[in-house]
Design a protein around this nucleic acid. Structure first.
Lengths: 339, 339
DNA sequence: CTGAAAGCGCTTACAG
DNA sequence: CTGAAAGCGCTTACAG
């Protein structure tokens, strides 16, 4: 069963493809095509179950109604949930999503962007890995619509949707202090991403503001290709359980937090009795954890929505002003910090 | 900066587009084009950073190198992880993935399939929602390559990659019996999907085999648009904590399990002391849960790989035999069942 | 060894 | 009110 095309309809009706195309694209009125003819065309199109070939349309119009989504890893619940929100908003505007996981590797994102740039997407939503500045600059230079999410490059003027990482990390750390902890460690990633830097900054600011000296020994920077064993090692180095060394840990990502909690549990430590815990991001795991984990929940729906909206604005007007949106993340105290 | 096209290269070299296309597609030898000419073309293509327009190529060849992935919800870690595996395998073969979340709603999958069928994908990997039999039949009728994952329709001869749900549910339930529990409840979805039916079947078979009568009161079928409150209600009806009523619960999906655990925790129950728990699927949450949750881990990597391979076979030969692959899921006993 | 031409299925100036 | 024609950027028989 061959698919019906414009010409099939045109032939059967004895009219031109032009007319059929015009009618089916809702431009009948505009071109003063008779209602009678209009209806005949629409009726037959429905009968033949006509669906325009989007590839042909795309070649002609230069539009594909597809957005390229480049994130670190779709299997990471943070990006999975964000992907879902983006999909939802995109679908509402008639757009589809092709996704690529970069694994935070700029070589990967480079290839992925190149691949999708060959006329397959109208624009990109990107969580750019460290070291991908050139790729972003190149997109900008070529006037390809895109918006950054989760992190941005402060030196490059682009659209972005991020959260206030400093404020969120500050709030979580300050909460620990208010709960009575002062030996507070920070486990983060050793990677040049501004969101990560900001999380550490917020952590430090909260300590300073509370007159607690920052102890670099308590800040563990994990190589970013970290394995479970690395985290375990780093966590153990902090000597959790020994309260003269450390009383609480702030995990800068949920992946770190989940692995860290596994380690703490395996050491037989009681949370928060032996060691208190707070974490950036709020995966399901933290809700059913015993005790539930105090966490910083990002406004995923808003990030998803805004990123699509900003991108579409850019697609419709490539010279639109860049939009820089900073949303607030919400700290949710739970039992893991003695709340 | 306009993108360079085939004709740009042809013009600059004073040759035909044919020649350039042939060379760039590695068909130079075959057409006995001189090495000298071949190299000139390749060199210039590289210099001009030529990237073939995939849309044009797609229109001409009818191939897009894109796979449509339709699952219930990319935000569900099970599908997120599976999506990642599929992406990986697809990328290895030069394919990209456009994904759609159906929310287990056949109206959604219908629209999504229709949308992507307009020449945008070469084939589909689908976790078909209940009630989508017609859509699958229609794909089959139109000889569109596709493979089902996670569940299949026994009455329709199609490619599929699933796990042995009966065996896995049997094993998990049997484990509970061996651990000394006999009042074992099952919380599942009230939905006509063969994988769900099989999970309940495996649960029942294990009871019967162990001479434990099946008590329908202990089987809770959740409407599939379940909310957290519904699960909480269902779990409470089982009267967990009252061991004369129920001693253990088998959750048929991780979404049910996670919500169920939240309820059990909120009731202040001790696991497994007051109530033991096992669950289908093995999200991160189960590993850091205290106690860790006994779970059935599906071989996601294998499902992802095989589904892509089978689909590509079908794309390359539309009359290929259908492949029906049943993989084994692995039961991992942990502390939640007293292990 | 190489090229001219047709065509994939659309849209859109242009002309009448 | 409607149509013939060009063209988006490729690939591929066909011809020489």
């Amino acid at each position: 069963m061959k698919k019906t095309s414009l010409s099939d309809i045109a032939r059967q009706l004895g009219v031109s493809k032009t007319l059929v195309s015009l009618v089916l694209n809702g431009k009948a009125k505009e071109h003063r095509i008779s209602d009678e003819m209009s209806n005949k065309v629409k009726k037959l199109a429905k009968e033949l179950n006509y669906k325009p070939n989007q590839i042909a349309k795309g070649l002609r119009t230069g539009r594909t109604n597809t957005i390229g989504l480049i994130i670190a890893d779709i299997a990471n619940p943070f990006f999975g949930k964000l992907g879902r929100e983006i999909e939802k908003e995109a679908a509402a505007h008639g757009y589809r999503i092709v996704f690529c996981s970069s694994d935070e590797n700029p070589d990967n994102s480079q290839k992925q962007i190149e691949m999708l740039q060959q006329g397959q997407v109208d624009g990109f939503i990107i969580a750019p890995p460290a070291g991908s500045e050139n790729q972003i600059l190149s997109l900008k230079r070529n006037k390809i619509p895109f918006v950054l999410i989760d992190r941005n490059f402060p030196d490059i003027d682009t659209n972005y949707i991020v959260v206030d990482n400093i404020q969120a990390a500050f709030e979580a750390t300050d909460h620990l202090v208010k709960q009575g902890y002062s030996k507070i460690a920070c486990v983060t990633l050793n990677v040049h991403l501004n969101n990560m830097n900001q999380r550490v900054l917020g952590y430090k600011q909260a300590l300073i503001e509370n007159n607690i000296p920052v102890d670099e020994e308590l800040i563990k920077m994990m190589p970013f290709t970290h394995e479970k064993d690395d985290i375990a090692e780093a966590v153990k180095q902090l000597e959790p359980g020994n309260k003269s060394k450390v009383e609480a840990i702030f995990f800068a990502t949920s992946k770190l937090g989940i692995m860290g909690l596994e380690t703490l549990h395996s050491l037989g430590l009681h949370i928060p009795g032996d060691i208190a815990v707070v974490s950036f991001d709020d995966p399901d795991a933290y809700k059913i954890s015993q005790p539930p984990v105090s966490a910083i929940a990002q406004p995923l729906q808003e990030i998803g929505r805004e990123s699509v909206k900003v991108l579409l604005d850019m697609i419709h007007d490539r010279n639109a002003e860049t939009k820089k949106i900073v949303l607030k993340a919400k700290f949710i105290p739970r039992k893991s910090s003695g709340f």
